[in-house]
Amino acid sequence: MRIIADTGRCVGAGQCVLIEPELFDQSEDDATIIVLNETPEGELVEKARQAVHVCPSQALSLED
């Protein structure tokens, strides 16, 4: 599974970082998303799904 982030859509609310700082970070400059680990495994897969679910701008998606 692969995490796809559309930085153009990201509104920088940081919900994803709160859910899993191991997977996501925010740029220092404008707070847009940085994916730290694009191919999560194990427990992190569920965290990635949660992040997709809460992201307010549908900037995140998963690809099998």
Partner: peptide, 12 residues
């Protein structure tokens, strides 16, 4: 306009 100030509100 939003991105200009967002960097002040990152989790870190």
């Amino acid at each position: 306009a939003r991105k200009a100030v967002l960097g002040e509100f990152t989790v870190r």
